[in-house]
Amino acid sequence: MTYRQRRALTAYAFLLPAIVYFIVFFFWPIAIELWASFRSGQPLIGKSEFAGMKNYLYIFQDKLAIKAISATMIYALGSTVFTLLLALGLASILAGPLKARNTIRAILFFPYIVSFVISALMWKSILDPYTGLLNAALLKVGLPPQYWLTDPDAAIWVLVAVSVWKDIGYAVLIYIAAIQGIPSHLYQAAELDGARRHHLFRDITLPLLMPTTLFLAVVIMIASMQEMALPYLMTGGGPANATRLYSLHVYETAFQGLNIGYASALSFVMFLLILLITWVQFKLLNRDIRHV
């Protein structure tokens, strides 16, 4: 064996665990899923037969799926936009010389490290219209109680709010790091060019945070599109299926409905949709910014 071959072999040997991991836990399940999505009957658990595009076409007739897609879009877009906006605002304040900033950062980051199950149940119990802390407090101060969790129009926004609450610490942390990575001489140069605070934010901070924003948008968007624990624990998909997010629908279709072929088709569509959205986000937002 030549040196080059040995070197290549060593490299592959080091890569092997990762390759095996991706094949076993990523590509193999995707392949199975794709296979199952073209079958009717009981693929994976029983007898099944080839069904062509039947499962994919059924999505268009499935009112629950269509409703789930729109709920998921609201949830994903809402979570992403509000998380980014709030995080950006907080990060610009917290990146500066503020006395209590470490304390505030820790408080903001706390929800991110709390188990999602715990935070979902916590918010559910706080927001419960009849037994919740929030309404007890509202009544105490003489304000009208809220019925968000029982209001089909409001419930999805409760989920959005919890998701923002959950992710904001992470986004703020990333934004602070990015803001602090912007060289201070750029701000000084801009000040000399006549820029005021709002110009600095608009013309320096914001554009230079674009790669960070893109990263966060993609990460939060993808995670939100796959969200299932939150509606599963907080609302059970209700009221009136207003919070039946796509993953919950897939889960119920597969495990409660035992429609594994159809559920596979649903998941595969989501897989493609996420791929597409990620690609579009990169196309739209990716600008080449290299500090020199």
Binding site: V24, F25, W28, P29, I30, I32, E33, L44, Q226, E227, M228, A229, S247, V250, Y251, A254, F255, I260, A263, S264, S267, M270, F271, I274
Partner: peptide, 16 residues
């Protein structure tokens, strides 16, 4: 939650 939870869990279940 994962893209296709049941597939992952089935793969895991297979392994276990």
């Amino acid at each position: 939650m994962s893209k296709s939870q049941w597939l992952q869990s089935s793969a895991l279940a297979l392994a276990l």
